[in-house]
Design a binder for these strands. Sequence first.
DNA 1: AAAACGGGGGC
DNA 2: GCCCCAGTTTT
Length: 224
Amino acid sequence: MVAPIYRIGRRKASRRISAVIDRLNTSYKRHELAEISGSDPFRVLICGILSARAKDTQTAPVCRKLFELADNPASLLVIPKAKLKSIIRPIGFYNQKTDALRKTCRILVENYEGDVPETFEELVKLAGIGRKVANLVLSVAFGKDAICVDTHVHRITNRLGWVESNDVLDTEKQLMALVARRRWRTLNYVFVRHGQECCHPLSPWCSRCPIEKWCAKVAVTRCR
DNA sequence: AAAACGGGGGC
DNA sequence: GCCCCAGTTTT
């Protein structure tokens, strides 16, 4: 166990951050949703909407099935609403997610000629897109310097002792100041994977954790 | 049985 | 800021 990063020197902190991300990156080489969506803006957007409060293992098959039927907003709108619902049902929240998908696709067709807008302000105006998904799209689809903080990133970075915060937005700000920009994109994927495989909310498997020696283990049983 | 799941929207 | 959404898997 190590001291939290906000209590050690800047240079040492920066080395530790690199080490952690490198190690996670080799431990979790595959990111299923990332492989499905690639960097295609429409697909990243749809994966983002569907993945809210759902597990990757559930979301991935749904995204695959959906992209077989439609890989752009116009063709998604052709799918009957009932059919769309039945596809989304397994991951829960299917009424909201179906409506959000259709509404967003209508906006894309009507206002953006079927393309996905490239600014945060425009993205969050779409249905089913909040801060997290907007940043995901900016980062993954458009290669912009956005950092995407979800509950996994929040929980893990707090446990590691990288930031000290109860608030996701605050965690996002602290991480932007702490982590090198070129790492932002991978950070989200490796932490999500790590959160699902190992660093669970209530009982993390520290004994099989690849980065345990760099973890401050702050609030291990509390952080969500 | 309960908790968890890559949040977002309406109020 | 609070509460709801909803079905499936894991503990």
